[in-house]
Each structure stands twice: as structure tokens, then as C-alpha cells.
Amino acid sequence: MTVEHAVVAPNPVLSVVIPSVPAHDHSRTVEHLRSQTFTDPYEVLVVDDASLDRSAARNRGLESAAADVVALTDDDTAPPPEWLATIHRAFANNPDLVCLEGPVYGGCRSDVPRHYVGCNLAVRRADALAVGGFKSEFSEWREDVEFGWRMERDADGTCRFDPAMRMCHPSVPRTAFDATLEHELKTSYPHRYATIMNASVRKRLYRRCRSAGLTQPIHRLLNALGYRRSVGD
């Protein structure tokens, strides 16, 4: 098992965890993280081990992190310069905050609360581990949503969506729709699923298109043409 300290800092105020499973080139993401406006010490951990699923990799990163607040992103994102400063400010100003999410733009889109997209999350490390971290049973589909909903339900604190906590995901996600795990999420959290995932006709239609494998090829074509549109799943 490999946990690479891509950015090292003594007594970091923030830790960033990047799961890279299986191994992908994460150098661009790390460079964006090295170019943050945040001036306090922070570390960047890359969990690079093909024997792990994405949930286990994130949990390994949480366990290895030195800071009380951990930001989570993926190995194919482009974190904006103010990303870490926004996260630090939110947690510093809200002592009861345990989980923070924000909008994602680019090839992956999400602009509504309570979707907890894994490339743009931040948590208090102790609270995330106390609820059991990410569940491997939901990898590689909806493990981030399930984690966020479990933080809402079980953690001793509040979860919040911050529009200022923006994340760029330039490429279309590699994750494929999994009907079995989607059904498991719906069965495990019926009220949340009904009020969040089925909140509109648009959401239901998008999910059906995603399950049929229609959305990702279209998004790749639109990305190639330089088109950007906000679409949430």
C-alpha cells in the first residue's frame, strides 16, 4: 500500500487526500494544489494502490492525514487557486461543521446540495472516521453520496453546501452507472433518495439516460467542442 506525500508540511492546518486507483497521472492535480492562495501549511497525500477500491483508498488517506480537516478530490481535477482557502475559512468559522461540499464544473457537473461529489468534499477527520468512513460496498458508484448522507445522519455536527467551494473536473468521469448500487442506495435511504435524487423530472430523466450509457459519450463530444453546460445527476 502506497501513500505518497506529494506536498509535505510540518503541523499542517489542512490535509488533501487524492485516491489514484488504479494509478493515473495525478501530477496536474498536484500542481494545481501547489498553486493555491492558501498560505498556511498544508499537506497533499496521494493514495496509489491498485489493490484498493476508491473507498478504501480514501479511508487510507483519512487515516494517514495529519490535519484535523481533510479535503478530498480526485486525480483528474484542477482545483481552483482559492479552493483550500475557502475550505479553511468555512471550517474555522463553523466549529460544528463536519462535512462541506460544493459545486463541480467541467466534464463532471453538480451544482445542487446533498450530492456530496467525491472530487469536492472536505470533512473533519475524526468525525468521518467515527461514522466508518467510505463504504467499499458502494465503490465505484455512489460511495460519496452514501458517505455524505451517513454523515448527515450519524455525525455529531452539521453538513453544508458552499457555492464558493468550486472544483473543476475537466474530463468526463470514468465511473459507470451501476444499477445494483443505485437500488441499494435508494433502499438504504428511501427518504433522502426521494427528496434529493428524485426531486425533479430533470433529475429522473438524466439518471435514466446515464443508466442507459447515453450521457458520457454526449459529454465527451460536447467537451471536445468546448461546450460547457451545468448538468447534475
Rank of each mutant, 00 (worst) to 15 (best):
D48Y: 05
D48G: 02
A50W: 03
D53E: 09
R54P: 06
A57E: 06
R58K: 05
N59H: 06
R60D: 13
L62H: 04
A65H: 09
A66S: 14
D68Y: 06
V69T: 14
V69H: 12
V69Q: 12
V70K: 04
V70G: 08
A71F: 03
L72C: 08
L72I: 05
L72N: 06
T73I: 08
T73Y: 01
D74P: 09
D75W: 02
A78G: 02
A78N: 09
P80C: 04
E82T: 11
A85H: 04
A85D: 07
T86L: 00
H88W: 05
A90K: 00
F91K: 11
A92D: 14
N93K: 08
N93I: 02
N93M: 04
P95M: 06
D96P: 06
D96W: 13
L97S: 05
C99L: 14
C99V: 11
L100R: 07
L100W: 00
L100A: 01
P103T: 09
V104N: 09
V104M: 05
Y105N: 12
G106Q: 11
C108V: 13
R109Q: 15
S110W: 00
S110H: 04
S110F: 03
S110T: 13
D111W: 15
D111I: 13
V112H: 12
H115T: 12
H115Q: 09
Y116F: 15
Y116N: 00
Y116V: 01
G118I: 10
C119K: 09
L121R: 10
A122T: 07
R124L: 15
A126W: 01
D127S: 12
A128F: 06
L129G: 07
A130Y: 03
A130W: 03
E137R: 14
F138V: 07
S139M: 02
W141Q: 12
R142M: 15
E143M: 14
D144S: 10
V145R: 01
F147R: 00
F147C: 03
G148N: 13
W149I: 03
R150W: 12
R150I: 01
M151W: 05
R153E: 13
A155Y: 10
A155Q: 14
D156G: 01
G157K: 10
C159A: 11
R160Q: 11
F161C: 07
D162V: 00
P163A: 07
P163C: 09
A164I: 02
R166T: 14
